[in-house]
Amino acid sequence: MERDPLDHKGLIREAYRIDGITAPECRSIFLDWALSLPGDQDQTGAITTLLERYRAGNEEHPMTGVLQDGLLTVGRPRRRGGWKSRQRE
């Protein structure tokens, strides 16, 4: 079986196959998937492709919602907390 370059561990594919999977479980799987992407991988493109692949017939699946949420937050700047945010130049 050939490995999928966007889901080389098969995490997203398997999440869609698990009966009764919950949104928190899907978020955990998504995080593992996202951390395993190569650094030069276009995250937005990867998530979009996975949504196109799995959304049809799975509109109510929790992983579909997690992927859609991931698409909305990719590249959004985050507030830096802790001591670094309080340092003056």
Rank of each mutant, 00 (worst) to 15 (best):
S28N: 15
M1P: 04
D32R: 11
L50M: 15
G75F: 01
K84T: 10
S85R: 14
T49H: 13
P62H: 01
Q43I: 06
D19N: 10
A34L: 13
G82F: 05
P5N: 04
G45T: 07
G10M: 07
A15Y: 02
G45H: 08
R53H: 03
S85H: 12
L37E: 10
R86N: 01
V74R: 02
G57P: 15
F30M: 06
I12C: 02
A34M: 13
E59T: 03
G20D: 09
I12T: 06
R78Y: 01
R13G: 02
E14Y: 14
G57V: 08
E89C: 10
T49C: 10
S28C: 11
W83E: 11
P24V: 00
G81N: 14
E59R: 02
R3V: 06
H61V: 09
P77G: 10
R86G: 01
R86E: 11
Q68L: 15
I47K: 09
A15S: 05
G39P: 12
Q41V: 08
I12S: 01
R27P: 04
E59N: 01
R79E: 09
T48Q: 09
V66M: 08
A34N: 08
W33G: 02
G75L: 06
S36G: 13
Y16P: 00
E25S: 07
D7I: 04
H61L: 13
T64R: 03
E25Q: 13
A56D: 10
R79G: 08
D32F: 03
T22E: 12
A46K: 11
L11I: 08
R17L: 15
I21A: 01
D40N: 12
C26Q: 10
R79S: 12
I21H: 04
R13M: 00
L31Q: 12
R27F: 06
E2W: 04
A34W: 05
L51V: 04
T44M: 10
G65H: 05
G81R: 15
Q43W: 01
Q68N: 09
R76Q: 14
I29E: 07
R80W: 08
Q41M: 14
R80Y: 05
H61G: 14
C26F: 07
R27K: 09
T44V: 14
D42M: 05
M1C: 12
T48F: 06
P5W: 05
H8V: 03
G75C: 03
F30K: 09
D69Y: 08
P5K: 02
G20L: 08
R88P: 00
T49K: 14
P5L: 00
V74F: 12
G81K: 13
G10A: 09
H8P: 02
D19A: 15
L6A: 07
S85P: 00
L67Q: 12
K84V: 11
T49Q: 08
Y54E: 09
P62K: 01
A34D: 09
F30H: 05
Y16N: 00
R3P: 06
F30E: 01
Y16V: 00
G70V: 03
P38C: 06
I12H: 00
G65K: 03
A56S: 01
N58Y: 02
W83D: 11
C26K: 02
N58I: 02
W83F: 12
L67S: 01
L72E: 03
L37D: 11
R53L: 07
E89P: 11
G75R: 03
R88H: 03
V66Q: 10
L37H: 02
A34S: 09
S36H: 07
A15M: 03
R80K: 14
L71E: 04
T22L: 10
R3E: 06
R80L: 12
S28F: 14
M63K: 13
